[in-house]
């Protein structure tokens, strides 16, 4: 670290407390948040402090290490599961126009959706693949660290109130059908068609600690890496590199890149503006 960088880092007690908290949680419970991006994590931990009526992170450490209900509350409080169907419709449009033609020559397509949250993005992709006539050839592995959101993803039931917005986004993403064909309305819920789920396997996988489990033609990981620091990002990029076959597709979030990936030279940008890359070697 350069002299100026040292100076800029004023010794900060809260940082030290945060470090100790994350280390304690890792050693005792095995959940590894040590390499999550600090500024956004700190914000959420302060929220947890507020909720618990505490003012110091060291007090939270004491609480969560001795109280298994408190650690569960904290985990819920610090995980971000915000998601949507067809978030960034231009991405899905580019996928339809430029990735689908490449896939249509494949006899069999394996897709890994890493950090799938409550599943909206997975169902959106399933709809797209059905419309492209590729779904029957696909096997989709949708994973997340968080068991609770995976349960929701498996159910495929979302608030009916969101459907108007999703319909708009679906149309902007190049959807040609009537979006309401894909779900059944029941009370306040939209229940998505079971046929969309047929080839999806939901399972728990932690990008911070688990290894590669298959070889894929496509890996989608959007708005997950922004929560990781450069060290953890490199780990995940290695994992993706190990799990992606030659000429496989890697799709990241709109504001993410391969800049911190040691494997960047092995990829070419297929659709630069949408962060869709293809592995060349």
């Amino acid at each position: 670290m350069s002299q100026t960088a040292m100076e800029r880092k004023t010794v900060n007690l809260e940082e030290i407390e945060l470090e100790l908290l994350l280390e304690g949680i890792y050693q005792y419970y095995g959940y590894d948040f040590r390499n999550y991006a600090r500024a956004s994590l700190k914000r959420r931990i302060r929220k947890v402090l507020e909720g618990e009526g505490l003012s110091q992170i060291s007090a939270l450490q004491n609480l969560v290490l001795h109280d298994s209900a408190a650690i569960q509350r904290m985990l819920l409080g610090i995980t971000v599961n915000v998601t949507s169907m067809f978030r960034d419709p231009s991405f899905f449009l580019a996928f339809r126009q430029q990735v689908v033609p490449l896939l249509s020559t494949y006899p069999y397509i394996r897709l890994w959706h890493a950090g799938c949250s409550e599943g909206q993005e997975v169902y959106a992709m399933a709809i797209l693949l059905q419309e492209a006539g590729l779904y029957d050839r696909c096997r989709i592995y949708a994973t997340d660290r968080n068991e609770r959101v995976l349960q929701r993803a498996k159910a495929g039931i979302y608030p009916l109130g969101l459907m108007q917005q999703y319909t708009q986004l679906y149309l902007q993403s190049g959807g040609q059908h009537s979006f309401s064909n894909y779900y059944t309305a029941a009370y306040d819920s939209a229940i998505f068609r079971a046929s969309l789920r047929e080839n999806i396997l939901f399972s728990q996988h932690d990008l911070a600690s688990d290894g590669s489990f298959n070889e894929f033609n496509i890996i989608l990981c959007r708005n997950v890496l922004i929560y990781f620091d450069p060290v953890l990002q490199q780990r995940v990029h290695r994992l993706f590199h190990e799990s992606l076959c030659r000429f496989g597709i890697l799709a990241l979030g709109r504001q993410e890149s391969l800049r911190l990936s040691p494997y960047a030279p092995d990829y070419e940008a297929l659709v630069k503006s949408e962060k869709i890359f293809r592995r060349l070697s």
């Binding site: 991006a37 956004s40 959420r44 971000v80 915000v82 708005n223 922004i226 929560y227 504001q255």
Partner: peptide
């Protein structure tokens, strides 16, 4: 030393 994004 850097900028971060989140969709919180």
């Amino acid at each position: 030393d850097c900028l971060l994004l989140s969709i919180d």
